[in-house]
Design a binder for these strands. Structure first.
Length: 309
RNA sequence: GGACGGGUGGGUGAGUGGCUAAAACCAGCAGACUGUAAAUCUGCCGCUCCUUGCGGGCUACGGAGGUUCGAAUCCUCCCCCGUCCA
């Protein structure tokens, strides 16, 4: 293991300019960009997920984009496996890996690893979900309390999704999630990680989000959505639940809805950005930079941090 | 001009004499989150004071008066908005 390998991580909320900064750094530092984004792994969903168009990549290789079809399941574990492989490959060709992270869980899965827990079981989840619907959400909480008291105390009774996961781990592995988690995780070794966080002023960020939604539509977002539907991609598929796609999915056939959809997308995106900030704020060892990634001053600042790191 | 219906906290909107700073939802803010994570969930959310408590004070349900021990809730007048009749 070569401990001198570096990994630059650029994290921040949506629309903070992570991609622009990554490309700028990659150009100057001979790097390649890897996305850490749960939505960009899906093919055909391009504009709304914020994939940088080929023409704007300035010759820089981009990875971990377009990995699966819309009807495929993709998880944090899958991401971790794919990302570690790509990371190795990039370092093997002596390039600097630059990660643009918007999905906090995926970043943590890569850097800190995941517990050695079983993957998902859709039949089990289906059964549990049915019971939850029939007996109320507290029902699952009671079940978990019996199986894994500690996890139950940390998960809200109404949080069906997390309750199901905890029960799933206990049933499939025979061990409580709390115990598995305590045993530790397989963290990424052999890299010096330099984290750069983009923290624009809240008002400016919200403004930019609003403008970006409009500009995405200008780039043909709605046309893309129509194309997806015409292509026969089921509206029930996961990427159609992504921010914006869920609102735009219903617009064709009733164009009057577009204005309302735009407002909803802008609002939902602001809320998402806020959640990202909550997650990233507690991330350790981040060099925070106040501003947007396409700001020259920010780029210079980031270059300095990387050089120091 | 006449007849009804309505004006409630940032928004929608419940509430028809005390249990109401006022349901619920939304927005907003803060937070949690180890395999759905652009997901899911939690707390706060009129102002203010302190000895931070199921604490005190103040302001609040279009406006002004009134009835009442007590009013968002009842009465009177006025101002707006909507529908209908002329």
């Amino acid at each position: 293991m070569n401990a001198h390998r570096r990994l630059v991580v650029i994290l921040g909320p949506t629309a903070s300019g992570k991609s622009a900064l990554a490309i700028a750094l990659a150009e100057r530092l001979d790097g390649e960009v890897l996305a850490c984004d749960s939505t960009q792994v899906y093919r055909h969903f391009d504009i709304g997920t914020g994939k940088v168009p080929l023409a704007d990549r300035r010759g820089i290789s981009h990875h971990l984009i377009d990995l699966v079809e819309p009807d495929e399941v993709f998880t944090a574990g899958d991401y971790r496996r794919r990302a570690t492989d790509i990371l190795e490959a990039i370092c093997a060709r002596r390039k600097l890996p630059i990660l643009t992270a918007g999905t906090g869980l995926y970043l943590r899965a890569l850097l800190e690893g995941l517990a050695d827990a079983p993957g998902r079981s859709d039949e089990l989840r289906e059964r549990l979900r049915e019971r939850s619907v029939r007996h109320g959400p507290e029902h699952l909480h009671r079940i978990l309390k019996r199986l894994d008291r500690e996890s139950a105390s940390r998960i809200a009774a109404a949080d069906t999704q997390k309750l199901i996961r905890a029960i799933e781990i206990r049933v499939l592995s025979g061990e409580p999630a709390s115990a598995l988690h305590q045993r530790g995780r397989e963290r990424l070794e052999g890299y010096r990680v330099i984290k750069i966080g983009l923290m624009p002023a809240r008002a400016a960020l919200y403004e930019r989000i609003e403008r970006r939604v409009i500009s995405m539509l200008g780039f043909g977002w709605l046309t893309e959505v129509k194309g997806l539907i015409n292509k026969g991609i089921a509206p029930s598929v996961k990427p159609f639940d992504f921010l914006g796609y869920s609102q735009l999915r219903d617009v064709p056939g009733d164009e009057m809805k577009l204005d309302e959809a735009v407002k909803q997308i802008q609002q939902a995106t602001r809320q998402y950005a806020k959640r990202q900030l909550t997650w990233f704020r507690k991330e350790a060892d981040v060099h925070w930079i106040e501003g947007f990634g396409d700001d020259l001053r920010v780029v210079e600042d980031a270059l300095r941090r990387v050089a120091e790191g």
